[in-house]
Design a protein around this nucleic acid. Structure first.
Lengths: 334, 334
DNA sequence: AACGTTACCGGAAACGTTTTCAATATCATT
DNA sequence: AATGATATTGAAAACGTTTCCGGTAACGTT
């Protein structure tokens, strides 16, 4: 049923080679026959088979994208950026959702390689570290986003969470706060560790003490933010501000504070991290560190494209900056 | 560099055919040679080329997904559901983001067909109506989500927005409200039209009058919800409730009401539609009509799988129900 | 008229698989 | 030992493209 290049050739009375030539805008075909072929193509509604083409050219114009959770707005936004950028170069993207499952992550890598993708972008966990490094060493184009496999020489685009955590905390300090708590993200993720490290660094460098019971570990979820906030408030009545490891937890903290009958920012100031959609929508609007999410996706795509084109990228590590977005959840203390 | 089935065959001292057989778990190969081949495969780290396989089998085990905006949580969640469901059947998904651009929508369809996807799931606009219908008629597996191309016989899974709008409005009425406004979504989308129709039907059937200046058209965006609410309040001081065409606009209405110095639900009750993530996070928590988003994706995937397996689906239209989620944004009037 | 260029075209191999068909090896049965 | 059945194997075609290499036609130059 499917119309192939052979059908076109037969119908137009030319060889397959010639049809291929007009398909690819090659020279060596007269205007007349080109037109004739074009007409037939149109008439028969012919659509070239990329699979066959991919087989001979050893190139599929498809890349793979591996994310833990596409329904997480962070990754959804990145996916969008990648798709739009890479499409403009004629590529499309197959995406795999791992659900943070290491096994599925490895399966996905194999699946995508099997599907002959030309390159890979992913937020990989440390579990796939060797695989990624091997891939990269073998010359296969991979770029990492968000998460960092260290000392690996595999191109990555990430934010520097240490300085971002530092900046957030420093902002609070500059606003006059001294008793500042931190609700950290999971401390088995680089992200969580780094932001906490930035918090400590800022405290120390500004002559404040870091008290261990002012740091509570959450897991980036709203509920964990709520619990952490409750726990902190129980023991530290004199607290004036908290830096939440992400906006989701900040929102949990919001709820806890309301439930305690307190007000933001009058009683407690809060700064978050990420600037997800809700941050500007919630009341009081959340002051937070904005990640340039779309830019991360765009950059990752661009780096990959460079590699696909065989261009050597000099700097494997691209660090993008977060930006403080001042809204209404932090008050100045005099 | 890439190791192929031929390399395995040579190394194992058997034919390509035999290797193919063990690859596909066919009978007709002795345990001894099977093991030998398996060993070599393992040693050489061989990964079959799906592209080549796809060419001969005329099946790629890949489907296409076309959405207007993957960074919209609704579609992100659907994408996740589809990927997870369809992966369990051995398929993967290429996704295209159209940005609501009709041209890109058509391009995407062609691209995906060119990549020989086995099927297509999409939230298509009316612009691609003929194309979708033609595809379906030709026997190519397509299923529509969210948006409905009417009278087309192409399998769709959608919510019935008319009854959903009806239910939302009816709830308000049952709570004792009489002066109820509606901030509609864009009235050039079926979704917007239907929900508004449901609103009117509920009003009429309950003996209330529908006043045209109590219906204001928004465009599903937060800002439009804000503007619409402001406009309504200017002219209708005696209003007690509003049904917002989606949660995003409900949030805009929240802001407007706060800016007016009024309180929810004491002064004005609000019901939304969709139950997106923020709905439960915002204060007061938003009462809304919940769409079973994950289920929509799952069902769409399942319907497609059925078609891929050649099973004939009897009922082209699958309607899923929305569910009222009562929270704190509507008060009872006595 | 002979030759050299240039423009245009086609045959066939190749890409990495699956599958059809036929061939061979093995073994039990007589 | 011959036969038949069964288990195991391989050669080659096919899938729909691109590309290499060569060939013919047309035309201008000498």
């Amino acid at each position: 049923m499917k119309v192939t290049i052979k059908d076109i050739a037969r119908e137009a009375g030319v060889s397959v080679t010639t049809v291929s030539r007009v398909l690819n805008n090659k020279v060596d075909v007269s205007p007349k026959t080109r037109q004739k072929v074009l007409d037939i193509i149109n008439k028969l509604n012919y659509n070239p088979n990329s699979i066959a083409r991919g087989l001979v050219m050893n190139k599929t114009y498809t890349i793979g994208l591996i994310v833990p959770d596409i329904s997480n707005s962070f990754f959804a936004e990145i996916a969008k950026a990648i798709e739009e950028e890479i499409r403009s170069y004629g590529y499309s993207v197959i995406f795999c959702n791992t659900g943070n499952d290491k096994k599925r992550e490895r399966e996905s890598i194999n699946l995508l390689k099997s599907k002959q993708v030309d390159g890979l972008i992913g937020a990989f966990s440390n579990a796939s570290k060797e695989e990624i490094i091997a891939l990269n060493k073998s010359g296969f184009p991979v770029v990492q986003i968000d998460r960092l496999v260290e000392d690996s020489q595999v191109p990555s685009v990430v934010v520097d969470n240490t300085v971002s955590g530092y900046l957030a905390t420093e902002y609070l300090i500059k606003k006059g706060h001294k008793r500042i708590a931190h609700i950290s993200g999971s401390l088995d993720t680089n992200t969580g560790i780094r932001r906490a490290a930035g918090y400590k660094k800022a405290m120390l460098e500004n002559g404040l003490v870091v008290e261990e019971d002012l740091i509570i570990e959450g897991d980036f979820s709203q509920e964990s933010g709520y619990q952490a906030m409750m726990q902190i408030m129980e023991e530290n009545k004199d607290l004036t501000a908290v830096f939440a490891g992400n906006d989701m937890m900040a929102l949990g903290a919001y709820r806890a504070i309301y439930d305690l009958g307190l007000k933001i920012p009058e009683d407690i100031s809060i700064i978050g991290h990420d600037d997800f959609t809700l941050a500007s929508l919630v009341r009081p609007a959340l002051t937070t560190m904005q990640q340039p999410i779309y830019e991360i996706g765009e950059l990752a795509a661009r780096v990959l494209i460079d590699m696909l084109k065989g261009r050597k990228n000099k700097e494997p590590l691209i660090v993008v900056n977060t930006r403080l977005v001042e809204r209404s959840s932090v008050k100045t203390i005099h």
